[in-house]
Amino acid sequence: MDLEHRIEEAILISDVCDIVSHHAEKHFKVFITYVINQVYQEKTYRRILEENQAFRETMAALEKHPCVRGLSFTSFLILPFQRITRLKLLVQNILKTAEEHSERETNAIKAHQQLEQIVQECNEGVRKMSRTEELISIEKTLEFKSKSVPIISHSRWLLKKGEVQLMCGPKSTRTMRSRKLYQPVCLFLFNNLLLITKRSGDKFQVLDSCTRAMLRTEDLEDQGQQLAFVFNLKMLENQEDRTVTYMIKTSSTSDKLRWICALTPNRRTRFTSAGSQQSDSPQVQCIQSYTAQESDEISIEMADVLNLLERTNDGWMMGERLHDGEKGWFPSRVVEEIHSKEVRAQNLREAYRVQQAHDSGGGPQVGSKSGIRAGRRVGKGLDFSSRWSESVGDSSEGTQ
Rank of each mutant, 00 (worst) to 15 (best):
L3D: 12
E4M: 12
H5P: 00
E8S: 13
I19Q: 06
V20F: 06
V20M: 10
I32L: 05
N37T: 09
V39S: 06
I48F: 07
E50K: 06
N52R: 05
A54L: 06
P66N: 07
P66T: 11
G70Y: 05
S75V: 05
I84R: 01
R104W: 07
K110C: 07
Q114R: 08
Q120K: 09
R127D: 10
K128F: 04
T132Y: 06
E134M: 06
L135Y: 04
I138A: 02
K147C: 15
V149A: 03
V149Q: 08
I152E: 07
R156K: 05
E163R: 14
V164Y: 00
L166K: 02
G169S: 09
S172M: 06
M176N: 09
C186Q: 04
L189K: 00
G201Y: 04
D202E: 13
Q205M: 13
V206C: 02
V206T: 05
L207T: 01
T211C: 10
R212H: 08
T217N: 05
F229I: 00
L233F: 04
L233E: 02
M235K: 01
D241E: 13
R242P: 01
T245W: 05
W259R: 00
C261H: 07
L263N: 00
R270N: 12
A274H: 04
S276G: 05
Q277L: 12
Q277A: 08
S279W: 01
D280I: 10
S281V: 12
P282G: 12
I287W: 00
Q288N: 10
D296F: 07
E297Q: 13
E310A: 12
R311M: 15
E320L: 04
E326H: 05
E326T: 15
W329F: 09
E336R: 09
K341Q: 08
K341W: 05
V343I: 15
A345R: 06
Q346R: 08
Q346H: 08
Y352G: 07
A357L: 04
S360L: 12
G371W: 01
G371K: 02
G379T: 13
G381A: 14
L382C: 11
R387K: 14
E390W: 06
D394L: 14
G398T: 15
T399G: 02
Q400L: 15
